[in-house]
Design a protein around this nucleic acid. Structure first.
Lengths: 240, 240
DNA sequence: GAGTGGTCTAGACCACTAG
DNA sequence: TAGTGGTCTAGACCACTCC
């Protein structure tokens, strides 16, 4: 791991173990540079990294301070600033399991071609899964994956984690995702499987995920029970 | 403005004007460094900035490529990666106006004290506004602002933009925000003002906004008509 | 092996904050 | 005015990709 990330991790750990006074600035970059036996630029980069994670914030001329975050208690939140897949993410809160509702191969729709940057003759997997936490259903996921990009998907893989198949078996890296979040009414399938009422709102996340090569590899609609899920986002503003 | 941000802006403009072949990598960092008459570190920083904005992505050993984004057509999206306030943000799409439903001063609740890091004796503004695009209501906003942090708020300011009052008149900088997004049923007030049905889902954003000094200055619940609003987020993954 | 992006250094200067 | 973080440089080495 890069030195600046290691330093960032150490500082973060120290913050979480209350080794710094939360009301005072951290030691200056110069002090930290001596402490970690490195250059100030590297310390600056480490702190920058923590700024992006929302752990600290810096004020030119004043110092770097610990950020007192607001939404960190919660129950079943999905934090887009944590960079891990759903399975690992939610497993902190309990036992995640998957139920495969359907699994097939077909040709893509026009919209799927556009989102996944493929041709209409490139077959895609069409997967519908129900996801449960401690055996309680909380989300339905409609997944489209191009066969040529992620080949040889099996029911076994779908029951555990597609992400670890991609990372560990195919040795591919995941680069990022674009998401659109909205609210909607439930469909019949969701009323049935999520055991919710026809008047219950749904929280929908529409998402295209990319490999680090820039190739999109999945187009997902996930629809969440509104009472079991919320999404955390934190933003920085850079404009003057 | 910092040199690396100026360069980032120029490169971004060039990309948007199709001055680069979208399927080929950008010129190498070394080439760009010569072109912009600067060091490679500065070019690297500029490209890093564009990576964070989701404009390009880099692959070690290969090059830096233009990202073909997926959700950029839309109608009334709120993009958390654009760093501007609602008023400017949505004004691209039409005429934004505000209707003040109520405006008062009171002592904060326990929860408001915790989110805003204030004491129970520090008065807060309590503001309810209806926001309209082209005279059609699309969101209701419940805002709590500590009087001591943002003093002298008037109905006039509320009708235009609190953010520009903070930036232009008070000369304060906005640092960032934490948000929680969820879905919910509408309340009576929303059914009335947003002209929606009791069974319509609502998209809710709960948000604490900070000044660049780290002091929280507003705690907002905004509740959006589900058919008029979605939220865009883009994420990068850094884990190996 | 040649070319690419990622990281690191040491030193410098600047912009800003606070006493 | 002293101390802080923000930026920039020139040069170096490494890890990775692609031929």
């Amino acid at each position: 791991m890069a030195k600046y990330k290691e330093i960032a991790k150490k500082i973060k750990d120290q913050i979480q173990e209350n080794e710094y006074n939360i009301d005072l600035p951290l030691p200056s970059q110069e002090t930290l540079a001596k402490e970690f036996n490195t250059s100030r630029v590297t310390i600056h980069k480490a702190l920058q990294f923590l700024v992006m994670e929302g752990v600290v914030f810096s004020r030119q001329g004043s110092g770097t301070y610990i950020r007192k975050n607001t939404f960190n208690e919660p129950s079943l939140d999905l934090d887009f600033n944590e960079h891990i897949g759903l399975t690992q993410r939610a497993s902190k809160k309990g036992e995640i399991s998957n139920k495969i509702i359907s699994f097939s191969v077909r040709f893509p729709t026009q919209e799927e071609c556009e989102k996944l940057l493929i041709n209409k003759n490139d077959p895609v997997y069409d997967i519908i899964r129900l996801r449960l936490l401690n055996n309680e259903p909380f989300l339905m996921e409609y997944t489209i994956i191009p066969v040529q990009v992620i080949p040889n998907i099996t029911e076994n893989i779908l029951s555990s984690s597609v992400y670890s198949y991609i990372k560990n078996d195919l040795k591919l890296k995941i680069g990022g995702a674009n998401r659109r979040i909205s609210a909607d009414r439930p469909r019949d399938l969701e009323i049935q499987y999520l055991e919710c009422d026809a008047t219950d709102p749904m929280l929908e996340v529409e998402q295209v995920t990319y490999l680090s090569s820039g190739i999109p590899f999945e187009y997902i609609h996930s629809r969440h029970r509104y009472d079991k899920r919320s999404i955390l986002v934190h933003s920085l503003y850079n404009d003057k």
